[in-house]
């Protein structure tokens, strides 16, 4: 195939413990470390391996958001993507609109495969890949832990609650990736230098003529109800006594 599109979302880093602002207006992201959504790094790694195997010729990384997301796209280029597209939007964009943006880019680029993370670790929605597949009218292989391409089809193993499900899908298709698919490569310094010369195209969201979806409004933020720290026991006998006390054994 010619082209693979990969989504890279800029999110608060995995290691940051996010706090709700005291006035309940949002979460505090001032000055916190931002990174590529970890699942999206796995998506990119998979696309790069497919290209390196000779089954694709170009990997294009896409991000949607403010110009700050250029940072994540440059990291994607340093990992080995061929070029990048930033769809600029001043406000946060909901899942269906993101799916419609990807559909517009799929059409523009004539991409045959879109690989996305199975969820973003900020909103934890897990929706975009499935929505893109729906409006594209193409297969979705979500939560992938193994992808084997075979000409115009792919055999994908998916992590489901009861174990591992294997499906065959015809290309073009959307794949969303789970943790165990691969281990993303580290970026080396010379690659960062090289990435600066790779093309990064900026498109205004308004230029893509994407229809806005009915909006789900977030009206309040609050911290989660905490669990109280309980008792400490000294030994197994104490543990069993405490469990018996609660009627659990």
């Amino acid at each position: 195939m010619e082209k693979i599109l990969v989504g890279l979302k800029r999110v608060v880093d995995y290691n940051v413990r996010v706090q709700v602002k005291s006035d309940g207006s949002g979460v505090d992201t001032d000055g916190v470390k931002m990174s590529i959504n970890p699942f999206d790094e796995i998506a990119l790694e998979e696309a790069l391996r497919i290209r390196e195997s000779g089954a694709a010729s170009e990997v294009i990384v896409v991000s949607i958001g403010s110009s700050d997301a250029q940072q994540q796209l440059r990291t994607g280029l340093a990992m080995g993507a061929d070029r990048a597209i930033l769809v600029e939007s001043g406000t946060s964009v909901d899942s269906l609109t993101v799916a419609r943006i990807f559909k517009a880019l799929v059409d523009r680029e004539n991409a045959e495969l879109v690989i996305l993370g199975k969820q973003a670790i900020d909103d934890d929605n897990s929706q975009t890949g499935q929505m893109l597949a729906a409006i594209w009218g193409r297969p979705q292989a979500t939560f992938a832990s193994e992808v084997v391409l075979d000409g115009d089809t792919a055999r994908v193993t998916r992590e489901v609650d009861s174990g591992l499900e294997t499906i065959d899908i015809d290309l073009p298709a959307v794949i969303t990736v789970d943790l165990r698919l691969n281990e993303p490569r580290y970026v080396k310094l010379p690659d960062i230098m090289k990435a600066k010369k790779k093309p990064l195209e900026q498109i205004a969201l308004s230029d893509l003529s994407v229809e806005a979806a009915p909006e789900i409004k977030t009206t309040a933020y609050e911290p989660p109800a905490g669990r109280q720290r309980g008792i400490m026991v000294e030994d197994v006998a104490g543990l069993i006594a405490a469990l018996k006390d609660k009627g659990l054994v």
Binding site: V12, I216, T218, T219, Y221, E222, P223, P224
Partner: peptide, 15 residues
């Protein structure tokens, strides 16, 4: 619903 691995709970309103 929870976001950020349950570190924040949001109230959302559907149209």
């Amino acid at each position: 619903r929870p976001i950020y691995a349950g570190n924040a709970i949001v109230t959302v309103e559907a149209p």
